[in-house]
Amino acid sequence: MVVDERDHVATALRDLAKGETARIRRGEDLLSIELLEDVAFGHKIAVKDIMNGKDVRKYGEVIGRATIDIKQGQHVHVHNIEGIRGRGDQAVKEAHA
């Protein structure tokens, strides 16, 4: 499921296995994306390539940024994106810099 046409990610509505082809509705388009990894129910799949450091969108809004390059069909989660807000850890680093 894709919420907004600007989104980089879709949400899996059932458990999906590596090698499966996910059919994804995005507005008027029907995308077919081959899964490069297993993606569990409720988790996100990249519907396009995302470069390291780039914003990631869901609901048409920014939900974080990529921490490595992410390929279409990969699982998108805490291992490859980070939050931009509420980062007290970075505030500490900046204070010591």
Binding site: F41, H77, G86, G88, D89
Partner: peptide
């Protein structure tokens, strides 16, 4: 910021993260 920690892990919580939510945003 005063706590000096990333919100992630506290909110979103471990359960939120297991449920597919990656960031507070």
């Amino acid at each position: 910021d005063r706590m000096g920690a990333d919100m992630r892990g506290g909110n979103p919580s471990p359960g939120n993260i297991a449920g597919g939510l990656s960031t507070i945003e």
